[in-house]
């Protein structure tokens, strides 16, 4: 059965490898207050005109340290308990784009490649030879170049836009999985506890089994 164990391990590793998409620019997101604050700001100014974030309420933004006055400014006359809806009505969006821009609450989970997809998509706009703008990741997308990377000319602008894309991606990653930080922190404690417990259980097992005399144990010859 040793070979079987090996097979199991190899299969699990192969599965993990399969799930990691290689050919997309990878983004290192951050979870600090400053990044999430800038990301939220960018979402409000660059994206919310078209996109909703319906599973996030204005109140939830306090949990990532956005100051209350800022939230009040964004929500206008909306209640803090309201979901963050798009400015553009679906009907109007349909008229302008022929499609309703998707809700972004789960967007970093809802595409192959996840966060990397989002990041690459936002930065994928470029000028085509016939003078129009297209996207490398999603050719023919109906969304305009929201961050303006296709019209950036200076190096400083490019750096700025890459930073914006990373901030928005970080913010939307939080929006899709708001408890991720807490989950991972808890995970370390849980694992530390389990490793300790399992080591103790192993010792208990050893002690209990030591009571069996092995001298007359012809059965051990069957064990490899």
């Amino acid at each position: 059965m040793k070979k079987f164990t090996l097979l199991l391990v190899v299969t699990c590793l192969a599965l993990l490898g399969m799930s990691a998409l290689a050919d997309m620019s990878t983004v290192q997101i951050a979870t600090d207050t400053a990044t999430l604050g800038r990301g939220a700001d960018s979402m409000m100014t660059n994206c919310r005109s078209c996109h909703s974030l319906k599973y996030v309420r204005y109140r939830d933004l306090t949990s990532i340290g956005i100051p209350k006055p800022k939230i009040d400014e964004w929500r206008g006359s909306e209640s803090v308990d309201n979901p963050m809806l798009a400015v553009l009505a679906d009907k109007d969006a349909l008229q302008s784009f022929g499609i309703v821009p998707p809700d972004l609450s789960l967007i970093t989970k809802a595409r192959d490649g996840g966060m990397n997809y989002l990041y690459a998509y936002l930065l994928g706009y470029h000028n085509t030879s016939n003078g129009s703008v297209d996207n490398l990741i999603y050719p023919g997308t109906k969304m305009p170049d929201a961050l303006g990377i296709s019209s950036a000319t200076t190096a400083a602008q490019l750096v700025d836009i890459h930073g914006k894309a990373r901030d928005v991606t970080s913010f939307l990653a939080w929006a899709a999985d708001p408890h991720a930080k807490e989950r991972i922190r808890m995970g370390y404690y849980v694992l530390a506890y389990l490793v300790l417990l399992t080591s103790l259980l192993y010792l208990v097992k050893r002690m209990v089994w030591a009571r069996l005399s092995t001298s007359d144990d012809h059965l051990t010859s069957w064990k490899k």
Binding site: I184, L194, T198, L201, K205, W209
Partner: peptide, 22 residues
């Protein structure tokens, strides 16, 4: 004998399980 052995096995299982969950 097997309560102790199974519980140790459970501990190992839970470690893998919790790596995925968390």
């Amino acid at each position: 004998y097997f309560t102790s052995k199974d519980l140790f096995g459970l501990g190992v299982f839970l470690i893998f399980f919790c790596v995925v969950v968390f």
